[in-house]
Simulated assay, not measured.
Amino acid sequence: MAIPALTGRTEIPEIELTDISMRYSAASEVLAVQKVNLQIRKGEFVALLGPSGCGKTTLLRLMADLLQPTEGTINVSGKTAKEARLDRKYGIVFQHPVLYDWRKVRQNVMLPLEVLSLPKAERKDRADRLLELVGLSKFADHYPWQLSGGMQQRVAIARALAIEPEILLMDEPFSALDEFSRERLNEELLAIWSKVGSTVVFVTHSIPEAVFLSDRVCVLSPHPGRLTAVVDIPLPRPRTREMRVSDEFFRLAARIRDSFEGV
């Protein structure tokens, strides 16, 4: 399908998916994603939106080189997804924080830096700066089980940013939270993104969340996942909670909802 003009921060494509299809072989072959073509520009915040089982997470994992496509190619800044992963271009935040309960918060954030064998002083300094960025400096010496779900997810975001990735991949990171916590973390995520400037690909099944966060919303059809619409979100930045009740916000949400009809 033809992709409309993009509204990202620059005109440089950072991620390009060409004719991506993914088949899982089980008792019977399952076509999860079918012929997806998409360009994501550097510094852009893009949401992958669709119902459960439409292939959103599969598509994200393909970008991250956690899965390999059955058909098609993925280009990341002129490299393959595997090369980009080996170059540590990705930070990944999963649906659940996946923190180590026996490690304190600072130690959890430092973990990928330990893998890279950075000097201890540098690891601590970077972890402390990131905890300040996500508003958790006071909890550096707490254990994850002492924090709320939303705070744990902020630790996971800090950990994902520890390697200073160019691309942040987020798989429904706030879906397990109550609506109040979710909206607050949406605002905090945008504040973090405005400071780090990473390209963000964000998986969600929430239309309001996608509209509030994104430069563009990519709508996927029910199984098999096909890219059926790409909707520009022209709401000004920085986004504010008042925008959630604006006429333009509801118009955009309705347009996205209408794009599911007949799919």
Rank of each mutant, 00 (worst) to 15 (best):
R239S: 02
L220T: 01
R103S: 02
T10P: 00
T240D: 00
S246P: 13
L6N: 13
A191F: 08
Y24G: 01
S198Q: 14
K124F: 06
E172G: 10
V263A: 14
H205F: 12
A127K: 02
F174R: 02
N37G: 14
L99F: 10
E166S: 15
P112C: 07
K104H: 03
A5V: 11
L116G: 05
R106H: 03
I192C: 09
N186I: 00
S214P: 05
P208F: 06
G197Y: 10
I192D: 13
H205S: 11
S28E: 05
K42P: 01
W102R: 01
F174A: 08
I233M: 01
R244M: 11
G50K: 06
K35D: 15
Q146H: 02
S259G: 03
A121K: 04
G150P: 09
H142Y: 12
R88N: 15
E114N: 04
S214D: 03
V201H: 04
T70L: 05
S21L: 09
G8T: 12
A140G: 03
P112Q: 06
D215H: 07
R103H: 09
V36L: 14
V109R: 05
P119W: 11
G53S: 10
E44Y: 06
R126W: 07
G8F: 10
S148T: 00
L66A: 08
A253I: 00
G225S: 07
S221F: 01
M1S: 15
V203A: 08
F250D: 14
L99S: 11
T199F: 07
I233R: 00
A26E: 02
R184G: 04
H205E: 13
H96Y: 14
G55P: 09
V231S: 00
A84G: 02
G55H: 03
R88V: 12
D87N: 13
R126L: 09
L147D: 04
S137E: 14
R239K: 11
P234C: 08
P69G: 12
P97H: 08
